[in-house]
Design a protein around this nucleic acid. Structure first.
Ligand SMILES: [Mn+2]
Ligand SMILES: [Mn+2]
Ligand SMILES: [Zn+2]
Ligand SMILES: [Zn+2]
Lengths: 132, 132
DNA sequence: CCAATAACAATAATTATTATCAATATTACC
DNA sequence: GGTAATATTGATAATAATTATTGTTATTGG
């Protein structure tokens, strides 16, 4: 068994993700942590983000396009991506709606469904309003 | 207005995707078309795949991990990715189940949802059976 | 047929991410 | 507290997927 040692860099990354509402990319996390640990390397950020995802402390948000994003909120919820400003926002849905959807998928598939990921796209509130 | 000229390479790519049940990557399309046009370049494959997606003749299947896949079936359907053999399979769902899910998302979001993408993961029929 | 130009093949460039490795920090033990 | 073992780091090289560039070729309307 390989033990896990404390690292102030990793702690800082976890703290940042647990306090921000944003869903930053590795690069954005890097820029933020650099203010606290100016010598941190981008590789260290990637290494720790992957470590934390593995550990279940954060989640990775990868909707095909461009870089992966990271989220300190590990409670089950969905994500919306604005086609205008690229902001990522949370969507919570009633458990029944989700379960009914997943159940229907299961009914229509021959293998075993273990997980799923859904992303929503469109215009966020701000962008909807600004486009009159 | 910039006119579109015929290209036997593009036609061949479209034909291939419309006749295969697979969901090949750009590289797999390249390997296939090379048998017919040995001088075709990978850049040409990418250029035409993007063109055809833009045009709505094919769809792009990008679930975060690795390369994008392409699908000649443009009718609405979902995709399943096997965690063991990486095969991509189609899932069709009753319209009501889908609509109920999308409606619920819309109810719980302040902006405007225009589209969504869902991927299912697990073990395909074959892999489920082989792991008894 | 021929001029205009869309599309091509070859290849360089870019982007996102992972791997390598010598130096450093953390931790368990005395 | 000092020290040995090793997890983690910063720096940097490597990889993988995709896009951009450019000079050449194929298509097409006149
Ligand atoms: Mn979130
Ligand atoms: Mn399909
Ligand atoms: Zn927006
Ligand atoms: Zn399988």
């Amino acid at each position: 068994m390989t033990t896990t040692k404390f690292s102030r860099q990793r702690e800082s990354i976890k703290d940042y993700l647990s306090t921000t509402k944003d869903h930053p990319t590795a690069d954005m996390v890097y820029d933020h942590i650099k203010k606290i640990y100016p010598n941190i390397s981008l590789g260290t950020v990637y290494r720790n983000l992957n470590f934390l995802v593995e550990q279940g402390s954060i989640i990775k948000v990868s909707y095909g396009n461009g870089s992966d994003h990271f989220d300190g909120n590990v409670l089950p919820h969905y994500h919306f991506i604005c086609r205008n400003c690229s902001a990522i926002e949370d969507i919570s849905m009633p458990k029944e709606a989700v379960e009914q959807f997943l159940h229907s998928a299961d009914e229509n598939f021959a293998g075993t469904i273990e997980a799923s990921s859904t992303y929503f796209y469109g215009l966020c509130k701000k962008c909807s309003e600004n486009k009159h």
